[in-house]
Design a binder for these strands. Structure first.
Lengths: 196, 196
DNA sequence: TGACAAATCTCCTCACCTGTAGTATACTTT
DNA sequence: AAAGTATACTACAGGTGAGGAGATTTGTCA
């Protein structure tokens, strides 16, 4: 979703073509390999946006090299963008890969859970170190937004580490619990429910 | 990636068919609509796992209804699972949708950034409330792992809220910064670099 | 000095994996 | 008959990885 709307926003500024959009997007989110977008995604997204009537092709330039297909925002696109601004973002809290790994580890016999946790802790510390250094190197005069972004990442990594400690501390307790079974659903037509 | 390996783990326990795997997966990650997986994903993933040689179809049951195609783990699959256990998970720190929205908001003229932030804050508080209640309702005797998961979500939401406050406090400063331009890359063959 | 190879950018395409949404058929219970 | 589970499939959207044809600059060598 993010890329889709980011492209709309960039086209609201001025008409552009695919390659240019890609560069502008990466600059927008901080440059320096934060959020790399693959060309394929840009062009595919543009096609869908065009099909949805949110953008329109307004010209083609051909000067020597390959064609540049230039897109611009339509009124419907401008509206969609406004709507996006007025809607809150709900995070993907589910789908935490490490949580799944931990659960699967509990399931599979002979898994060394302490090691599992240790590996994850190392990974998190490495990331923390990397982002902290990036943060120090960044110039908050010219890249303030990028700095704020790094702050957020660091805060999340610290939260992850604290959580990991909690998990390790209670590991014995967790291991004592039985593996969860899916509860069977009643089949057939449900009984008529009389009002409470 | 998570679903892929979770299916491997569940098959390591015992051979199963698609529908059963879906139910088992959702039970594993806590039930109660945490992490809903669509049937399509399960079947598509199973096909790819089979093609990759990590699982194999070991039988078909047909008792009345549709066929049940039963899969089991292969030795290669068991190996892949072990490798997963021994690898750290690096989070998707980039691709934070709200961050992009904020940046796009700075770009587009006439955007009310305070409102943008306010909407997001409301959303986060609602989520926080929802998960906090779920956490209180959960029974940490029988669902300890699920409780830990909720703890993590809450910690992250709190971090998001603190970060949002920071952003709002420094908003004027952020708005004063120019929109980032993609830096042009030098074309042609790069100059030979002599060693430092 | 002029020709050509090397490296890299510009712009777009294709093939694939992951995940979401909706559909279809058969069975089971009220 | 109605309603809902059990089991599977199809279609599409989002995202990754690889790559290809042409333009542009630099290094090199006769």
């Amino acid at each position: 979703m993010s890329v889709r709307y980011a492209l709309l926003g960039l086209l609201a500024q001025q008409p552009r073509h695919g390659y240019e959009l890609r560069a502008a997007f990466e600059a927008l989110v901080g440059g320096r390999d934060t959020w790399e977008v693959k060309p394929g995604q840009v062009y595919a997204t543009l096609e869908r946006l065009e099909e949805a009537g949110l953008i329109a092709e307004v010209g083609v330039e051909k000067e020597g090299g390959p064609e540049k297909r230039i897109y611009a925002l339509t009124p419907a696109g401008r509206e969609a963008l406004q709507e996006w601004f007025h809607t809150g973002v709900v995070g993907d809290h589910h789908r935490d890969e490490f949580f799944v790994k931990l659960m699967v580890g509990l399931l599979v016999e002979g898994t060394d859970l302490h090691r599992l946790i240790q590996v994850q802790r190392n990974t998190l510390y490495q990331e923390l170190h990397r982002f902290t250094r990036q943060r120090m190197e960044a110039d908050s005069q010219t890249e303030l937004a990028y700095v704020l972004f790094l702050d957020k990442v660091v805060m999340h990594l610290e939260a992850d580490l604290r959580w990991l400690d909690m998990v390790e501390a209670r590991l014995e307790e967790i291991q004592r619990q039985p593996t969860p079974q899916p509860e069977p659903k009643p089949r057939g037509r449900p009984r008529a429910k009389r009002e409470a």
